[in-house]
Design a protein around this nucleic acid. Structure first.
Length: 428
RNA sequence: GGAGACGUGGCUGAGUGGCUGAAAGCGGCGGUUUGCUAAACCGUUGUAGUUCAAAAGACUACCACAGGUUCGAAUCCUGUCGUCUCCGCCA
């Protein structure tokens, strides 16, 4: 959420930013209108309250002096204010709610160094790592490889759940678990993150805090429960909200969290693309990285977080490239985003395996997550960052496809051997 | 799931209808003292909104949350959420 005063005082800046994000600027006109109305109503209603408070105090004093008649007269007067007050309160609630809705629907402002552009074609590759393997045979995709090795069963997953679900078996399931453990170990021991295992179900407040609500309601799996529960679409939701509503001390920042969770997304099925295989599923596994930082450090921390995610691919020996998303391709809450894309041989292209965003104070304001500098200064909003470190399912795909042998077997990257009980190769 | 107790400021904790945005203590900040540290003493110390060019100031709201009673609510009533204790059940 953007700051109300900032929007009021920088309408043009906000307008430009919205244009760059392909977002309608229409709501800004309403913003100005409602803002004026809101302030007018607040002024009036505060004034009525003041009158009421003053009179009530006088009534108290009069009663003590035994001047019951005068007190009664005043009582009648105040009672008359009540109706007016009720109406003003109603108007005030309405104006403030509308204001909140308008603000909550505005996306974050892109950082100044983000390339302007209307979609992913304006994204800019900033680095590339590893060498794409030259196959001297026709490489298979992960579905063919996985099914022939009996480590992937899509058909039965469809039977017991539906399309966009998968079952991993034997060494395939073990590989998934190995990846989770490997990633968590690297992030906790080498990168200084604290491992956390959060709830996989969250309430609506948390979903508002990390911008899933109100705009992306239909992307979530909701539980049939009057508490407004939903399955988490990413660990970003429970982990970033961990300190929501709190005032932290500056000396305790930055905080680094890493969490393994399953992720549940309803939207995955609505796109006609990636219908084959594990690329786009209703349920997938992810190791997430989350940081809470001081405002002045978030850019640097963003770079480091992205490199922490890249490190996993380097250790696994998987070629990738890193791109900075253009203004038109960034997600709602991000000020700047790096996507890390891993090489997928069967598609002869790089596919997203991690998205690392600096959300600046956007989410912190939504969840009222603040910190205080030493010396009793005013509380300020922290900056929140998140990134996948990495999407485990897609890493699984990348390993199968990049490490496949002509006979259909899979060589397991050396760093995973200890996590695979010494297994070096998956074969029939 | 059943029974009971309880939710007050950064923390502990007073406060059962007006003089309470809220005692006291701790912590924080500023100062005095001191060779330095500590102690002691003095002062100060919530958040947000409106107004104002800004500051100062003024006003409003906030004692879990949402309603209600009343001229007036932290205090009374109702609902919700949460915490604790005992019992039951379960992994």
């Amino acid at each position: 959420m953007l700051d109300l005063n900032f929007v009021r005082e920088n309408l043009e800046t906000v307008k430009t930013a919205l244009d760059n994000r392909n977002t309608s600027t229409k709501s800004l006109e309403k913003f100005v209108e409602v803002d004026a109305e809101r302030r007018r109503v607040i002024g009036e209603s505060d004034q009525i309250n003041q009158q009421r408070n003053t009179s009530s105090k006088q009534i108290g004093a009069l009663m003590q002096q035994g001047k019951g008649d005068e007190a009664e007269k005043l009582k009648a007067e105040v009672a008359g204010l009540k109706e007016k007050q009720a109406e003003l309160e109603r108007q005030r609630d309405e104006a403030e709610n509308t204001m909140r809705e308008l603000l909550a629907a505005l996306p974050n402002l892109p950082a100044s160094d983000v390339p302007a552009g209307k979609d992913e074609s304006a994204n800019v590759e900033i680095r590339r790592w590893g060498t794409v393997r030259e196959f001297d045979f026709e490489p298979k995709d992960h579905v063919d490889l996985g099914e022939s090795l009996s480590i992937l069963d899509l058909e039965r997953a469809t039977k017991i759940a539906g399309s966009r679900f998968a079952i991993l078996n034997g060494a395939g399931a073990r590989l998934e678990r190995a990846l989770v453990n490997f990633m968590l170990d690297v992030h906790t021991t080498e990168h200084g993150y604290t491992e956390t295992l959060p709830p996989f179900i969250v309430n609506r407040n948390s979903l508002f805090g990390t911008n899933q609500l109100p705009k992306f309601e239909e992307d979530l799996f909701h539980l049939k429960d009057e508490r407004g529960f939903a399955l988490i679409p990413t660990a970003e939701v429970p982990v970033t909200n961990y300190h929501a509503g709190e005032i932290l001390e500056a000396k305790d920042l930055p905080k680094y969290f890493t969490a393994y969770t399953p992720c549940f997304r309803s939207e995955a099925g609505s796109y006609g693309k990636d219908t084959r295989g594990l690329i786009r599923q209703h349920q997938f596994e992810k190791v997430e990285l989350v940081k809470l930082t001081l405002p002045e450090n978030s850019e640097e921390e963003h770079e480091k977080l992205t490199q922490n995610a890249e490190r996993i691919l380097q250790l696994l020996g998987l070629p990738y490239r890193t791109v900075v998303l253009s203004t038109g391709d960034m997600s709602f809450g991000a000020a700047k985003t790096y996507d890390i894309e891993v090489w997928i041989p069967s598609q002869n292209t790089f596919r997203e395996i991690s998205s690392c965003s600096n959300c600046t104070d956007f989410q912190a304001r939504r969840m009222n997550l603040r910190f205080r500098r030493a010396g009793g200064a005013k509380p300020e909003f922290v900056h929140t960052l998140n990134g996948s470190g990495l999407a485990v399912g897609r890493t699984w795909i990348a390993i199968l496809e990049n490490y496949q042998q002509e006979d259909g077997s899979i060589l397991i990257p050396e760093v995973l051997h200890q996590y695979m009980n010494g297994l070096e190769k998956i074969e029939k």
